[in-house]
Structures are given as C-alpha cells and as structure tokens.
C-alpha cells in the first residue's frame, strides 16, 4: 500500500468521525481518481470511521445526532465508492432482517441499529415500522438471513417480539436468531422469550457479530 493510499484511508476514517460529509465525498473522489481498491476504502476507511464513532457513542462522547451525522459522511463516501467495487467483493455478507414490531411506529432507535449494522459489514433488509410478526419470518427465510432484529418503544407491543420467536419455532426456522431492543425491553424479557438483548446501537453490533458466528451458515 502506498503512502498516499494509507493517508487517504486515514482521512476517510477521520471524515466520518469528524462528521464532515463534504470532505468525505471529496476524499472518496480523490481515492477513486487514484485507482485504488474501492473495497479497501470502505473497509479500512469509512467502516473504520463508523467503528470509531460507535466506540465514542459507547463512551458517551457521541450521542444520536453525532452518530447520524457520522453516518451521513459515511454514506456520502459510500455513494462515490460503490460503483467501483468488484462484484465478488460486495457479495457474501451476513444478512439481517430489521424492523419495528406491529403496533408501533417509533423507528429512530431501529434506524440507528440499522446504520451501525450496515457499516459493520452486515447486509440489512429494513421492513420499516408497524411490521406484522409473520413478515419478519417470511423475509428472513426468503433471503436466508441468520438474524432478525426487532425494536419497540411501547410496552404494549412487546409481545409481538415473542410472536416472532414462536413463529420461528413453529416453522422450524429457529436456527434464525432474534435480537431485541428498545425503551421497555430488559435483558430478562429477552431471555424469557428466547431472544437476545442489546442495550443500544453500538452493543447491537457486538451482539450481532457474536450471534452470526454461533449460527450455522445457511
């Protein structure tokens, strides 16, 4: 790796952490103009920056606005780099189906988790909000996902998380793991329904990584 490439990678990572969308676009363009490998720019530049941002979030240094602005910079860079990816490099990721359970329309927490998962190399299919339990299972089976991630802010809709776990069992799909999070969710609740708990978006990534490692590849 040349010095220039290494500097550009570092600078891409910094742009994300510094929430500088314009500079991220500019750096990604310079990188592409130099004909460097695009996959590396995503992996060791942008994704590295998001990982650092996630760490700052965990350390309470960053909060939701900062994390979202970091992701803006990351996606800006990604837009430039994506067309230059070699096919085989973009394939074969762990797949996750994510959404807010039926009955709830609050989705900011879910969106944060989605961003963090995407930047950590997961392929995320977002079903949005107010999603019936069956839809999660169908989509997960259809795309061969190893993981379903569920969110809710409302006490009254928590039971739909349990429904997803039940349906997976009924359909003999319980090799698909379920992770849950949101305001009213506790580790005890997750354990009770046979799901896995994560406290926030940053913890969700660590959990997802552990879960897919345990999972049998489809």
């Amino acid at each position: 790796m040349t010095d220039t490439q290494e500097k550009l990678l570092q600078s891409l990572s910094d742009c994300v952490v510094d929430m500088d969308e314009d500079k991220a676009t500019e750096m990604a363009q310079t990188y592409v103009d130099n004909n460097f490998n695009a996959y590396k720019a995503i992996d060791q530049g942008l994704a590295d920056g998001m990982e650092r941002a996630g760490k700052l979030y965990e350390e309470e240094e960053y909060y939701i606005p900062e994390l979202l602005m970091c992701s803006d910079a990351m996606y800006a860079g990604l837009d430039i780099l994506k067309p230059h990816l070699d096919k085989e490099e973009s394939g074969d990721k762990h797949r996750v189906v994510i959404g807010v359970v039926e009955g709830d329309t609050h989705d900011i927490g879910k969106n944060l988790v989605k961003i963090m998962l995407e930047t950590s190399g997961f392929e995320v299919v977002d079903l949005g909000r107010d999603v019936p339990p069956m839809d999660f299972v169908r989509k997960a089976v259809e795309i061969g996902a190893q993981l379903i991630a569920l969110s809710t802010l409302m006490t009254t809709t928590m039971e739909n998380m349990e429904r997803v776990v039940e349906i997976l069992k009924e359909e003999n799909q319980d090799n698909i793991k379920v992770m849950v999070g949101g305001g009213p969710i506790s580790p005890g609740f997750a354990k009770k329904i046979g799901a896995h708990y994560s406290k926030d978006a940053s913890k969700a990534v660590q959990l997802a990584k552990t879960l897919v490692q345990e999972a049998v590849p489809c």
Binding site: E102, G103, D104, T105, R129, D130, M154, T155, T156, T157
Partner: peptide
C-alpha cells in the same frame, strides 16, 4: 368506564 383500552396501545 371499564372500557378495554387495548386498541389505544398499538398503531
């Protein structure tokens, strides 16, 4: 009034 409020708890 003793009326079931369940429907208000979900979209």
């Amino acid at each position: 009034l003793g009326v079931d409020p369940t429907s208000m708890g979900r979209a």
